[in-house]
């Protein structure tokens, strides 16, 4: 134990509280003769002792198996499924038939239509509400436009997530044809640019930043040759992985979809 010649600062007291001080015995000895330091430490103790850990939400006994059940489809080679259950119904990668492509085109057209409606709504003057208590009295055109934007961006992120999940699950020992993925990616790119610009204009930097990051990944896939080597494919997968883009798209997409389902406003009585 060394004798303390100067009063310990707040940082040393914090380390002492957590049992990480270099010389705890010297500090304790110092507290015996220095009331100011002892009081400072007791005050810190009182505050930190009052911070209790939030209760950990209970998970069922089957939690591990549940996690595995959601995870397994994404790990099985040749099993083109995503972690998200809802993606199961949209397994387009292995067989991009004309019917599936037509369905995909229709799905793509919907959010774009919503987006255009949103833009029109922004510029079209709305008649004054005349029936008290009706939705028109309590939901503004601005709110409706924002909601349409939420829904369309949420859809876009979900489709992007599915496309990326499928892409990272593509495997091949030699040359791999990624042309059908590129067709999808180019469609996603077009809408991505629109949504990014709108989010940016709206001042929504979180969405704009994510869409910008997503765009870089999509551009990289779109600009690759239509047939690439297994090594090039692995490098693309690695870059997607390192950026954590799939995870970010998933987290923000989930939130947006949840928010888009909430009522616009409480009805008036």
């Amino acid at each position: 134990m060394n004798e303390i010649t100067t009063h310990p600062g707040e940082q040393e007291l914090i380390l002492h509280y957590y049992g990480e001080a270099d010389d705890p015995a010297a500090l304790e000895e110092h507290f015996k003769t220095c009331a100011a330091c002892r009081i400072a430490f007791e005050s810190l103790q009182t505050t930190l002792n009052a911070i209790e850990p939030p209760e950990i939400p209970r998970r069922p006994e089957t939690y591990g198996s549940d996690v595995w059940a959601r995870l397994e489809p994404a790990l099985l080679p040749g099993h083109r499924q995503t972690i998200e259950g809802r993606a199961h119904r949209f397994l387009w990668w292995p067989v991009a038939t004309p019917a599936r492509l037509a369905l995909a085109a229709a799905c793509l057209a919907l959010p774009i239509a919503g987006f255009i409606i949103g833009l029109l709504w922004r510029t079209t003057p709305q008649p004054a509400a005349t029936h008290p208590g009706l939705v028109a009295d309590i939901v503004t055109p601005e709110q409706v436009r924002e909601r349409i934007l939420l829904v369309t961006v949420g859809d876009h992120l979900e489709r992007s997530q599915m496309a990326l999940v499928e892409f990272v699950n593509v495997e091949g020992d030699r040359d791999v044809d990624i042309s059908s993925a590129q067709t999808w990616v180019e469609d996603l790119l077009a809408s991505n640019r629109l949504y990014r610009q709108t989010a940016s204009e709206e001042g929504n930097t979180a969405v704009a930043d994510l869409l910008e990051e997503l765009e870089r990944v999509l551009v990289e896939i779109a600009r690759s040759p239509s047939t690439i080597s297994a090594a090039e494919l692995a490098r693309l997968h690695e870059r997607i992985d390192e950026r954590g883009i799939l995870f970010k798209v998933k987290v923000l997409g989930n939130r947006i979809r949840e928010d888009a389902q909430r009522p616009l406003t409480e009805p008036t009585s």
Partner: peptide, 13 residues
């Protein structure tokens, strides 16, 4: 959250 609650689109998130 850094954007603040200035707009419905933002605050909904």
């Amino acid at each position: 959250d850094a954007r603040g609650p200035q707009r419905a689109f933002s605050s909904a998130l």
